[in-house]
């Protein structure tokens, strides 16, 4: 097995996705199959090769003030709003 149930459970906590027992079993099997395919890469010699982080460039621009969205537009899709603030349940117990 490339991955076990405990690891999948741990990863689901990292990803902030709750899983039920059925999902947990299913994902363990499927992730295992995918990771086994990915093991193909182990055989590639990459000793002196630099990683390619996308096709990136450094972009600089002047720090100018420009138009941005109205406060109300920013909040228009929020599920719960009060007095111009986004509202959530308590974060600290």
């Amino acid at each position: 097995m490339a991955i076990d149930k405990e690891t999948v459970e741990y990863v689901s906590r990292l990803a902030k996705i709750r899983l039920n027992e059925k999902e947990l079993a299913e994902y363990t099997n499927q992730l295992d199959a995918i990771l086994n395919h990915i093991k193909l890469l182990e055989s590639v010699d990459t000793k002196n090769i630099e990683p390619q982080y996308g096709i990136l460039q450094t972009v600089m621009r002047e720090d100018k003030i420009a138009d941005s969205l109205e406060h109300s537009q920013v909040l228009q899709n929020a599920p719960d709003v009060e007095d111009g603030y986004i509202k959530v349940k308590p974060i600290l117990e």
Partner: peptide, 27 residues
Amino acid sequence: SMWEELEITRQLGFGAEVKRRIMLGAY
């Protein structure tokens, strides 16, 4: 709590393939 809502929001809001890929990536 906010944390519980967040985890269940993502459980119910995303479909199976999206969750599969998020977890593969997080791993």
